[in-house]
């Protein structure tokens, strides 16, 4: 068992793949000479050379499209989009090509592409650089979407992504790179589509993913002091979605709050809440509540930004007002 950061865990996963699979190469903006905007690939260019570590122009669409083409031709590319905000410039390639080529070709083609990107707000980068758009992509059949919250999950999910034959959006949270956690020395994977109970409890289920998992865990600690035992379900992947584990938890606790960082309107949490009400209605002792970000473009000012993003206080307030804790 070794302790490492979220950043180090992802670097480790990439390095392993580069070392063991000749088909793997990395490409993206500033991943080589600069070392990656979030320093995940620092040193890689020197270690693996320019054939495997490719700096690209700021051309998101062709970078993702080239990843798709190379994947169809038998390689295993990892494309890095510096942040998920920039994925909008490549959205046609992601949604119309990566996700659909297998289906539209009647199963003739496959696109084993990993798109690594950085999601989330909280760093005062304002409206265009603070979005959490992974839920949009999770609504597209043909894509898979991973949203790790810990170093253990990040490495395990990344390994699973390398073993998968489908296009995967791998969304890393910008504020989690420095998070430390235990990672076993022996090899393991975290299967795509398996949620994780990050805290056990009997009174209420908090469903979250990525950084919101940690916010939910802190809220659970506070609730415990009031004698309420919250269970925290970390989705780990939005698509496939582990419906079973969510439903199991809700059947046990009979109460549920779904938390996400993005805008509440149309957020992926609505999908989860709707699913819970369809599949566990008779077990519920109150409405399935939702907590999302403010329905406004992300403001720059620290106080406004904090007001826009869910935190422990908002979780506890929502639980009391809506869920009836």
């Amino acid at each position: 068992m070794a302790e490492m950061t979220y950043r180090e865990a992802i670097s480790k996963g990439l390095r392993e793949a580069l070392e063991t699979d000749e088909r793997v190469f990395l490409m993206g903006e500033d991943i080589g000479a600069y070392g990656g905007a979030y320093a995940v690939t620092r040193g890689f260019l020197k270690e693996f050379g320019p054939r495997r570590i490719k700096d690209t122009p700021i051309s998101e669409s062709v970078v993702v499209g080239a990843g798709i083409g190379a994947a169809m031709a038998g390689l295993k590319p990892v494309v890095e989009l510096m942040t998920i905000n920039f994925s909008l410039l490549a959205m046609d390639q992601i949604v119309n090509n990566a996700a659909k080529l297998r289906y539209m070709s009647g199963g003739q083609l496959k696109v084993p592409l990993i798109i690594r990107t950085v999601t989330g707000g909280g760093a005062q980068l304002a409206a265009t650089h603070s979005q959490s758009l992974e839920g949009w992509y999770a609504s597209v059949p043909g894509l898979k979407v991973a949203v790790p919250s810990t170093p253990y999950d990040a490495l395990g999910l990344l390994r699973a992504a390398f073993e998968d034959e489908n296009p995967i959006l791998f969304a890393e949270h910008a504020l989690l790179y420095g998070l430390r956690g235990d990672v076993p020395a022996e090899r393991y994977t975290v299967p795509l589509g398996q949620a994780d109970i990050k805290r056990f409890g009997k009174d209420v289920t908090l469903v979250a993913y990525s950084r919101m998992t940690h916010v939910a865990l802190r809220a659970a600690e506070e609730l415990a002091r009031e004698g309420v035992e919250a269970e925290v379900v970390d989705l780990r992947t939005l698509r496939p979605l582990d419906k079973e584990r969510i439903i199991q938890s809700v059947k046990k606790t009979s109460r549920c709050l779904v938390i996400e960082e993005t805008w509440r309107t149309g957020g992926f949490g609505a999908e989860v809440a709707s699913m819970i009400q369809e599949e566990a209605f008779d077990y519920l002792d109150g409405p399935v509540a939702r907590l999302g970000g403010a329905d406004a473009p992300m403001p720059y000012s620290r106080s406004l930004e904090m007001a826009a993003i869910p935190d422990e206080k908002k979780i506890i307030r929502t639980l009391k007002e809506v869920v009836g804790i």
Partner: peptide, 28 residues
């Protein structure tokens, strides 16, 4: 599409096949 003939598609969004071509050539 005919993968057996390396005919890798008609693309219906104007221009969307150009990045794909870049990727196929990159693989080559």
């Amino acid at each position: 599409f005919d993968a057996s003939k390396n005919f890798l598609g008609g693309y219906a969004i104007v221009g969307a096949q150009l990045p794909i071509a870049v990727g196929l050539a990159l693989a080559s």
